[in-house]
Nucleic acid binder design. Structure first.
Ligand SMILES: [Zn+2]
Ligand SMILES: [Zn+2]
Ligand SMILES: [Zn+2]
Ligand SMILES: [Zn+2]
Lengths: 166, 166
DNA sequence: TAGCGATTGTTATATTATAACATTTATGGT
DNA sequence: ACCATAAATGTTATAATATAACAATCGCTA
């Protein structure tokens, strides 16, 4: 497989900032590898949906995915997409962005986790954070109330550096 | 107005744990006061929707609200509810729970903020946290990437103390 | 009380997601 | 290779959530 960070970049996925083709190839390679290891079947549809999700760093909705799929596969219907999404979510290959009812590729599918995102309200790009401190704080805050966290959503909306220039 | 915490409780709103009528009265009193201060009009519909939202500590969906409203106001329709919700959200009197497409009363509407919640997957009750540390961490993490946060969603799902007993 | 903006009524439709059952495809044991 | 089985996909219908657009009414104030 390819892998290894292909560059540094300030922000998510503006075409200028990095060679996004590498993001896509890496994501698909890693997905294939993980599914293979797990005996999970990354079928054509599932792989294609993952590829479409990775077509940008912007969360994409199920029906946007469906629109594209339909051009390639006349009988694609909502369940086609939602089943693929269910699979990809189960495998930790994508995350759901709750504040947008949309989906984005996971930056690090090797270990299962809930995503944590900064999402630009202007360009739509999202970057995944890994802030273990936030999870620890949240866990301890819950714990002090006797609450046990099983999953969580953390999504911050605002302006990315590129979009603050305006 | 009434106000002042009416009791201590381990967790959210189980009927046994507290006199919930006081929660409702306090919430409505505070809403009236805030709207009055701001020159915002807490109309009958808006007040009633707020009251329905406060009927429990469980997030409630727009169409559940609508179902009740319709019994009292034959011509209630989706816009009736969504407009009231828009108003209540704007005034910071309720929060939207993104992971459930549902709404819950704000525990402290005096200062504008995004909510932060622990939500029990078993009983459905939710409690609002105020963890300034988490916001500070999130802000600084964003800041290190040049990102400026304008709003955020933090929702943790899991088991409340009551529901762990099973 | 006339005018004006805010609120509510009304109808229609957009968007997101799932249910239910039929058919096809992949896989493992013989 | 052949069959039994489970998994995946096809197909149709519908549920659940949310908004658009325009009309009618209300409430304030000039
Ligand atoms: Zn990229
Ligand atoms: Zn991830
Ligand atoms: Zn209560
Ligand atoms: Zn609040």
């Amino acid at each position: 497989m390819a892998s290894k960070k292909n560059h540094k970049r300030d922000w998510a996925g503006s075409a200028e900032s990095h060679d996004h083709r590498i993001c896509i190839v890496d994501a698909l390679d890693k997905a294939a590898e993980l599914c293979s290891q797990r005996g999970a079947r990354l079928t054509q549809i599932r792989r294609r949906v993952l590829e479409l999700i990775w077509s940008s760093h912007r969360p994409i909705g199920a029906y946007s995915l469906l629109k594209v799929l339909k051009e390639e596969r006349a009988n694609a219907a909502p369940p086609t997409v939602y089943r693929a999404l269910d699979f990809l979510l189960e495998q930790g290959l994508v995350h759901r962005i709750q504040s947008q009812n949309a989906f984005i590729g996971c930056a690090d599918p090797n270990h299962q986790h809930n995503g944590m995102f900064l999402i630009c309200t202007d360009c739509g790009n999202a970057v995944e954070l890994e802030e273990t401190k936030i999870d620890r704080l949240l866990k301890s805050s819950a714990s002090s109330r006797g609450f046990v966290i099983e999953s969580r959503t953390v999504e911050a909306a605002g302006l990315c550096p590129d979009c603050q220039i305006n």
